[in-house]
Simulated scan of single mutants.
Amino acid sequence: MAAMALFSWSWKGEKKASDWKASERALFPTLSCLTTKEIVQIWDQASLDVQWQLAAGKRVRIVGLGTFAVLMQELHVGRSDCLLVCRPVFQLSSTARKILNLTYAKRIIPDSAPVVPLDYTTIALETSKLLDTVMNCLNETVMYLSHCIASELNIDFVFRDMGILSVKHMEVQMRFYEKFLLSLDTTGNIKEVLGNVSLTVLA
């Protein structure tokens, strides 16, 4: 699944440093110096890092945004049958939810697995960017998202090969791609569940 431009909700094509207002350049100094293509490249690699960490049984926290994890869950299929599945979940940052007054289905991620941050060093190596540039790009993007949400803009934020985090009318939903769900399911039951249970899934 090809990544879409992360900032397609606010502009189309490349946004150059000269396109930013002075106040925006002060708030987002790194973003204003990067092209849209470079920002997408960094976030694409961050998405790959999340996938690697999840496959290794870890929970991954993106500061200011939320935490990804893989959980074993029993889901009801039909009236009486239950199937055990292994599926990814996203837990929105409680701070972001409260400050921005967002509505989101609460996910409880247990403390059984370690929580790790994004591997900024690997992302920097894979994108041939300075470590500070990568860290600032990721952090400023989350800040920019908050700025857009506070302005009541609708957002579709793409995580490469994982899914789309949508914010529409202050309601948040993380929809995972079916291929990503299947790649993490160790039970072999997710395909049957997808045909019978309503999950937030993108084909």
Rank of each mutant, 00 (worst) to 15 (best):
Q41V: 09
P110K: 02
Q51E: 08
L83R: 09
A56F: 06
A56E: 11
R61H: 13
K58S: 09
A2Q: 14
F28R: 01
Y120R: 01
A113H: 09
L75V: 15
P114S: 04
Q45M: 00
F28S: 03
P110Q: 00
I42W: 02
T30Y: 11
A105F: 12
I39V: 13
H76V: 08
R59P: 05
E24I: 03
A113S: 12
L118Q: 04
I99C: 12
P29D: 08
I42L: 05
S32V: 11
E74L: 06
A26K: 11
P117I: 01
W11H: 11
A56T: 06
M72Y: 08
L118G: 00
A5V: 07
D81S: 14
K106E: 14
S112M: 04
S93F: 05
Q53P: 11
L92S: 08
L83T: 04
L27P: 01
L83F: 09
K12R: 13
T95Q: 07
L48W: 00
L71K: 14
I39W: 02
N101R: 13
A46E: 03
R25I: 01
P110M: 05
F7P: 02
K37G: 15
Q45H: 02
D111M: 12
K15I: 05
L48Q: 06
A69Y: 00
K21A: 10
I62W: 04
C82A: 10
M4W: 07
Y104H: 14
S10V: 15
L92I: 03
L75K: 15
T36R: 06
C82D: 07
S32L: 08
V77A: 04
S23M: 14
S94C: 14
L75S: 10
C33I: 11
S47W: 00
C82M: 08
M4K: 08
E74Y: 15
A17W: 14
N101D: 14
W20P: 02
K21L: 11
A113R: 10
I109W: 02
A105C: 15
S8W: 04
D81I: 12
A17K: 13
S47G: 08
A113V: 09
L100N: 07
S32P: 06
R107C: 10
G66N: 00
D49S: 01
L34P: 02
K37P: 10
A26E: 12
V115N: 05
P88Y: 08
K106R: 14
Q53N: 04
A55V: 08
I62Y: 01
W52Q: 12
V60H: 07
F28W: 15
L6T: 04
H76W: 11
Y120S: 01
